[in-house]
Amino acid sequence: MLALLAKRLVQSALILLGVAAITFVLLYALPADPAVLLAGRSATAQTVANIRHQLGLDQPLLVQFWHYLGNLLQGDLGRSFTQKTDVAPLILARLPATLTLMAAGIAMELVIGVSLGILAALRRGGLVDRLVMSLSFVGVSTPQFLVALLLLYVFAATLGWFPMSGYGTAAHIVLPAATLGILGAGWYARIVRSSMIDVLNQDYVRTARAKGLSRRRIVLRHALPNAILPAIAMIGIDIGQFMSGVVVVEAVYGWPGIGQLAWQAIQQVDIPIIMGVTLVSAAAIVIGNLVADLTAPLIDPRIRAG
């Protein structure tokens, strides 16, 4: 187990290094020149050159990357071009908001998705099943901003149950988390449904029935722990997709997280912030996968044995 963890940590570090390198190259290959943007429209060529020198942008790409990596190892993500402050504290200050939103969103999609998936599997071929499957299809194919706007219109503007935007109370988190959760739930419902149907046909479920157990106990105690495994693996895969949803949702609901930070930074070509947010997101994805991989053995002793 420890060996697995060590192996996965080394892999994670390599993945993050790769992400850093690719992002770095892509950002500097952009046609937009941050120095020109910073200097303003009326700046002379000399001013632009000065700014470029100041930011270190006149050095060869490899040298820049080397410096960046060196700083990164010390926890320094560089200075924002536009906000003139260090990137690391900037991200750290906004991280709790994003993590809260993510946790709420994932919880929501799991609760909705898993319960609908079980329900559909138990009523396979019936009305409930068809309804759940159609809904999940709508769920996975609707763009996030549309869901966000619909929820805002119905529950905030019309019914007034939840605030339009902002951050701070429990009421604030409901709509953004629901936006993320509704979309993800469709995937989970489908995965859990098919794995549940599969598990319900397994010999050990027949054994459980032959023991005279109640249907409820068979489903929750015998089938669910087996059926949930693919959904857990899905969390790891899905978390990248989920991060991109977070950016949209934070923008729509004015949620002060790193998604919003990234959104602003992209418009201003604030490379250090974009780099920082990308790396933090990549780290989140890697950690999410790690957690998913470490959760599965907790449920399934066969994985524990390796």
Binding site: D203, Y204, R206, T207, R209, A210, G212, R221, P225, D300
Partner: peptide
């Protein structure tokens, strides 16, 4: 079931729940 009539099956490898 299980009380008055017990049953065992052909496939011992898959007839027990793997996570219990």
């Amino acid at each position: 079931r299980g009380g008055e009539i017990g049953m065992i099956f052909q496939e011992p490898m898959t007839s027990l729940n793997p996570v219990m």
